[in-house]
Nucleic acid binder design. Structure first.
Lengths: 226, 226
DNA sequence: GCGTTCCTTATTGTATACAAAATCGACCCG
DNA sequence: CGGGTCGATTTTGTATACAATAAGGAACGC
């Protein structure tokens, strides 16, 4: 983490995830270098990594842009997540132990509290949700599965939209986590897989709704300007 | 493809896949640069890409080595392939059209001929097998699924070992492809998925057997030397 | 003899300069 | 006025030099 390229990577990544660098925006190497206070060499390394993360794309002429995802793209990603995380849940059910189970319960309890509070603490919800899923993934004990899923999960479009989910979706999410925990306690892999797959698919619908809401809001603003 | 980094990437990649660069071997940037006739800068770009392909790994101190895969690692990869290609097969069954179906039949016919010839044409078998699976994958119409699977499929350990499969395994593979085609003709997604998943899992067993055979052969050679 | 410390050497990380390529705009021609 | 070509400018690709860091080995003390 001490290397300049790592620093640049984190910095640019944060800018993309926060939305300061908007989807479709051009990323000039020199400009980024000046912004990060390093030369172009580590910037280029960082851009390669961001490209592997699918956070940026390169045109045929090698210019870099922040990735812009269509709804179809996001749907594609959620379908893959549903399958991969379902697989992870099934494996995790076989390999589950008491310590992990206890940690899962703790995270989901805190997640439930975050949802119940008034107003709901969405940041806390997202953090606990993240930990919950990460723990299951780690329990599945497949290093490559973790790598594959990481690039699918860490997508800014999804994270940004998550702040606009309906409260009812958060509640449902909490309940489904409990069902997962129950499946783990019984060591029922197929059941855990089925719940997880549905859980992710419903998360896509929550995303889709929130996304359309946001789009509509933007259109309204444009109308006001005109 | 005209860029030096692309040239270096292909060149090093070929050396790894062919086995000229053995698993575990150290990859010094300067040595590679001299070998490829370019400077270290494009070499570094190439190494990043090879790392993303999981063809090389980097130690904590950032030195690069050719990936060495344990049997467990390979098993992990095959399990993921079984799931992902199974998913692809199910989707492909829904999206299948006559042109693709015809192409699949053609590839499998040629594959069968390669297996039946005496001696069996393993190169041809592998090429047709590759095309067959790639075609199904493309028909599934999920760009990200293709990306995820690519890194799992293009692994030199697997390709090298493939040349030592038993003929009976090649015959079975041919038959299973026919069953897949039948499932596609009926538009039966779940069936196609089940066949594909089993197909890949059995391919792992073929790999495992061939691998042990090769290990035993190596041990014999060592004994002869002593 | 074993382990430790320090120094030498090899290797990777970064900055800079320059070359190659692409984009954009002005200008000209039809 | 539209289209296309050429050139100026921007942007990316590569080479090289140097700095930082890690590996390997010799000398030293225990």
């Amino acid at each position: 983490m001490s290397r300049a390229s790592d620093k640049a990577y984190s910095q640019i990544r944060e800018l993309i995830i926060s939305g300061d660098l908007a989807p479709g925006e051009a990323l000039g190497e020199e400009a980024l270098a000046e912004m990060c206070g390093v030369s172009r060499t580590p910037i280029r390394e960082a851009l390669r990594r961001l490209e592997a993360d699918m956070l940026i794309r390169k045109t045929e002429s090698q210019r870099s842009y922040v990735s812009d995802w269509s709804l179809d793209d996001v749907h594609d990603v959620f379908e893959l997540r549903a399958m991969l995380e379902g697989h992870a849940a099934r494996r995790a059910a076989d390999l589950m132990d008491d310590a992990v189970l206890k940690a899962l319960k703790m995270h989901n309890t805190r997640l439930g509290e975050a949802v119940s509070s008034d107003p709901p603490n969405v940041e806390e919800f997202l953090a606990r949700n993240r930990e919950f899923h990460a723990l299951i993934l780690r329990t599945a004990a497949s290093p490559r599965l973790e790598i594959l899923l990481q690039t699918l999960i860490e997508q800014p479009v999804i994270w940004r939209t998550a702040h606009h989910y309906e409260v009812s979706e958060l509640v449902r999410s909490h309940q489904e986590h409990d069902e997962l925990i129950a499946a783990f306690e019984r060591g029922d892999g197929p059941w855990a897989e089925a719940i997880m797959t549905g859980h992710i698919r419903r998360a896509f619908h929550a995303y889709s709704d929130a996304h359309q809401e946001m789009m509509a809001a933007e259109t309204d603003q444009e109308k006001k300007r005109a």
